[in-house]
Design a protein around this nucleic acid. Structure first.
Lengths: 123, 123
DNA sequence: CAGTATCCATTAAGATACTG
DNA sequence: CAGTATCTTAATGGATACTG
């Protein structure tokens, strides 16, 4: 019935801790429409929930929350709640995710270059 | 009918050519369970369809074909068919995707380091 | 060998409304 | 302010069988 009998390679659910490939492991931790983008914005410093949201046009609150929570669980962001009212929650990179800064630097440059070509090439 | 009325942010379908963010553009071109992994294997040289498949345990023929075709369309791999029987098809990196080699190098190292920690940390 | 085709299960993502 | 909850659709991934 609701059971998987097969190799069971869900991206988000089982987080691929047991995968045998380091690259696959990394890809799985970072896969998601918004994760790299969120991390990239956090490299400039600690941001509040609403600050991240306003820096990423198009993201819904639900997706922002989901992705932040997953990344927190995976050790990619830390989350600090200040016991105030109104609530105040800070997010920042961890040591682990800081090591990925070169990744989005390369990707951003690469994207900039080739997006321009793609736009110019569209008839 | 088959029409989207909303912001329309499908990952694979509309390929995000019109996105306003370079990083998002890059992420969208590379998103997919297998793309980085395939590209990574191709950095060692030209590979045939069956060679890629055997280097990536767990991938199905369908997914390999789908991802290769998308990447070919996006200029991330090239595909050469030799008019022989039995068929012989070669795949290789393009200039564009060669620029991404640093990305998977970082990711692979990062994955290696932190996967070990994750495995050791699991109770 | 290098794929296609079909069908189906699971997951990601989005809209919208609501809350402590 | 910083989220939840609920519902819906879109997209991904897989099993299996078949083909030029």
């Amino acid at each position: 019935m609701g059971k998987r009998k097969t190799t069971s390679t869900n991206l988000q659910n089982e987080r691929f801790i047991a995968t045998t490939c380091d690259l696959t492991y990394a890809v799985c931790l970072l896969s998601g429409r918004w994760k790299l983008l969120i991390l990239c914005h956090l490299q400039d410093g600690i941001l509040r929930y609403s600050e991240i949201r306003s820096k990423i046009p198009g993201i819904t609150e639900k997706m922002l929350t989901v992705q932040l929570r997953e990344m927190e669980k995976d050790g990619l962001v830390y989350r600090t709640v200040r016991p105030e009212f109104p609530p105040h929650v800070d997010y920042g990179l961890t040591e682990m995710s800081s090591e990925l800064i070169p990744v989005w630097e390369v990707l951003e440059n690469w994207g900039a270059t080739h997006r321009k070509s793609a736009i110019n090439a569209t008839p």
